[in-house]
Each structure stands twice: as C-alpha cells, then as structure tokens.
Simulated assay, not measured.
Amino acid sequence: MTARRVGLSVAVAFLAFIALAAIFPDLLATHDPLRTDVRAALQAPGGEHLFGTDQSGRDVFSRVVHGAGRSVGIGLLATALAVGIGLALGSLSGVAPRSVDALTMRATDILLAFPEFLIALIVVAVLGPGSVNVAIAVTIAAVPVYIRLARTQTRTLRIAEHVEAARILGVGPVRTFTRHVMPGVLGSLSVLATIGIGSSILAAAGLSFLGLGPSEPAPEWGLMLSGGRNVLGRAWWISVFPGLAITLTVISATVVGRALRARAEGRRA
C-alpha cells in the first residue's frame, strides 16, 4: 500500500470518526459539555478529563465531541447551499443569452477577486452574529466558485455527443437539459464540494473565533479556540484540542476531495 493510499485511508477513518461524533456525540462524550465545576477549573489532561478542563471546569474533550455537530454542520449546510445556488445560477448562465451570461460572469469575477473569508466577514458583519448568519455568510462567499464551474461544465456538456443525440431523437430542450446536462454538472460540483467542505468549516470557525458565530456556552470549535487564548500560557489544552480538530478535519476533507477529483479526471489519486 502506497503512502498516498495510507493517507487517504487515515483521512476517511478520521472523517468517519468526526461524523460519528457529530451524529451521536453522547456515545463518545464522557461528561456533560455544559456542566460547570469551578473546583475542577483548568485541570490538565488526565484520566478523568482526557483533554483537561476549561476556566469553568467544563470537560474539553466532551465539548470538542459535541462541537463537531455544530462546526461540521455549519460547513456542510453552507457547502450544500452553495452547490445548489451555484448549480442553478451557473447552469442558467451557461444557456442564457450572451448579455445575461456576461453580466453573471462579471459579477462572479468581482466576488472571486476577494478572499472568501473577507466576503463572509462582511456579510456576517451586516447580518449580525449567530450560527444561521454564519452559514449564510459562508454560503455567499463560496457560491462564486460553483457558479463558474457550473457554467463551464454546462457549456461543455450542451454540445456533447450524447446531448446532440438526444436532440436528434426529438427530446425536448428542457428534458435534455435536466436529464443529460444537469447530472453531469452536479457530478463535477460534488467533487469540488468535497474540498469546499473543509474551507467552509475553516471559515465558519474563523468567524466564531472573532465572536461572530455561536455564543457561550455553546460548544463550537472556533468559539472554544477563542475562549482559551487568554490562558494559553498555563492552559494550552483549551485551545489546542479544538484547533487540532479543525486542522485535522480540514486536511482530511481536502485529502479525500483531491482523491475524488483525481479519480474523476482519470488520474491516479
């Protein structure tokens, strides 16, 4: 087994663990993530508290486990919405009149000129803090990439041989588009979305770190990372373990996404 295959296997296994933590956190958590115990505050990692405790005596490991659902959930929701919006707008742009297509692409180019996190930051600053607004902001920031890819794939597939054959056989334009073009576009977007999930999780965590996401005492990786920065010198575990969860999740999603893209392009992963 090559090193790449080992890395891919580890990435898939880690993502499966994160999925388990997100869906069934009580199976893994050892304590109530919201329960405070001032007498146990700032305990170092040990037998009773695997990842130590925070300033309020809450178990960091349990909060990291329960935070997976919120952090990964925001990233998945934002990516799914971005794919759906990008599929609709990009596909329509690919078959629209030249003036509409040019206008859509110029607006997309303007958004692509700015970093995704900056766009998300501006949007959430306008909408206000909160999990829903963070998901909306990350969605808006991610949409332009999917619009461009959907438009490119639509223009490529609409002149493909099997699409031309469907037209010759008398299949209507709407049916041809929905049955022979859209599935191919969606397949390409799905591969890109696998990589985009990691970026969305990272962006959502960054907004939460700045205080624009969920509020205390909600367990969320970015919020936990921010909560431990003032005591990093004497209680490093409060920030390090949520930071590791974010880092490893993003890396694993990227590894899996690149492998899927390589397979879709006919290359070796």
Rank of each mutant, 00 (worst) to 15 (best):
S9V: 07
V163T: 09
L223T: 06
F209P: 04
F17H: 01
A235P: 00
L121W: 01
T104E: 14
V231H: 02
L34S: 03
D54Q: 07
V138S: 09
L118R: 08
V231R: 04
V65Q: 12
A218R: 13
A150P: 09
V126L: 13
I195T: 10
T156V: 10
A22R: 07
I168Q: 12
A88L: 15
S93W: 02
V6M: 13
A68D: 00
P144L: 06
G67F: 04
T178H: 07
A19W: 07
A264Q: 12
L92S: 06
T36R: 10
V256T: 01
A262M: 03
T194P: 03
L202G: 14
G7Y: 09
V231C: 02
P217Q: 08
T178W: 09
R263N: 08
A11T: 03
L232T: 09
S99R: 15
T154P: 05
R5L: 12
S56N: 08
L34Q: 09
V231F: 12
G198L: 00
A44S: 12
S190W: 09
I18R: 01
F117P: 01
A218M: 15
L232Y: 11
D26W: 10
F17L: 15
G170R: 13
P129C: 12
F241M: 08
V138F: 09
S239E: 00
G47T: 09
R4G: 09
R35D: 13
I140V: 15
S239I: 00
L103K: 05
G227A: 05
L202H: 03
V83R: 10
A16M: 14
L87V: 06
A262N: 05
T2K: 14
L20E: 01
L92I: 06
G90E: 00
G128S: 11
D37K: 10
F117Y: 07
T2P: 15
S199C: 04
I140N: 14
G128K: 10
R179C: 08
R106Y: 05
H66K: 01
L89I: 14
A13H: 11
L112C: 04
M105T: 03
L149F: 11
I195K: 00
G222L: 01
R35G: 04
G227N: 08
T249R: 04
A11F: 04
G213M: 02
A120Q: 05
F241N: 00
T36G: 03
A264D: 15
L127Q: 05
V145D: 08
V123L: 07
A142L: 15
I238S: 00
M1Q: 07
V145F: 13
N230L: 15
V174Y: 14
G227P: 00
I140M: 09
F14W: 15
S9H: 05
V64I: 11
R39P: 03
L111Y: 11
L103M: 15
G196D: 06
R98E: 14
F14T: 06
R155T: 09
H162D: 12
L103T: 15
V255N: 02
A165S: 14
I246A: 04
L28Q: 04
G266C: 04
T108E: 02
F24D: 07
D59H: 03
H162N: 14
V12S: 11
V145M: 11
G46I: 01
M105K: 02
Q43H: 11
W221T: 12
V95Q: 01
F61D: 08
W236F: 07
W221V: 10
D32Q: 12
L112Y: 00
R234Y: 14
R175F: 06
T139Q: 13
P219S: 07
L34W: 06
V60F: 06
G266A: 05
V250R: 02
A78W: 13
